[in-house]
């Protein structure tokens, strides 16, 4: 089994600002999805969400509010899953609720540093 990083990307602007009930429903779909991965014993790290705002540091002490100037989507969060292959990891990502919100999931195998 190898570890894969799932990066959730979405456009914060198009994200519906729902009622508390809708927020709760969204939490439920999220928990049901990640719980399903955990129930297969394939969750390495549930990961975290990210706040929408941030800074980008560029050479020459250029710091911008970003990184949304060029692209609309930004990273909303990440999780780490265990899978035998990238195909299997991709399958796990297919149920991700972020897809229903117009977002996408990037699946990347983690290359473990060996000391």
């Amino acid at each position: 089994m190898k570890d894969f990083l799932l990066v959730f990307r979405m456009d914060y602007d198009t994200m519906p600002k729902g009622s508390p009930e809708e927020m709760q429903a969204r939490t439920k779909t999220w928990m049901d999805w990640i719980g399903g991965i955990a129930a297969q014993n394939k969750l390495t790290d549930r990961g975290n969400r990210l706040f929408p705002t941030g800074k980008v540091v560029k050479p020459g002490k250029v710091i911008t509010d970003g990184p949304y100037t060029e692209i609309k989507e930004s990273i909303a969060g990440y999780s780490i899953v265990k899978a035998g292959s990238i195909e299997e990891a991709t399958e796990l990502a297919e149920g991700c609720p972020v897809l229903k919100l117009g977002g996408n999931v990037e699946v990347r195998e983690i290359s473990v540093l060996v000391n």
Partner: peptide, 17 residues
């Protein structure tokens, strides 16, 4: 269901699954 989801995030076990 949600308690089991959370439990599995803390610690996997076949019975919990």
């Amino acid at each position: 269901l949600q308690l089991y989801n959370q439990l599995l995030l803390i610690e996997y076990s076949p019975v919990a699954a």
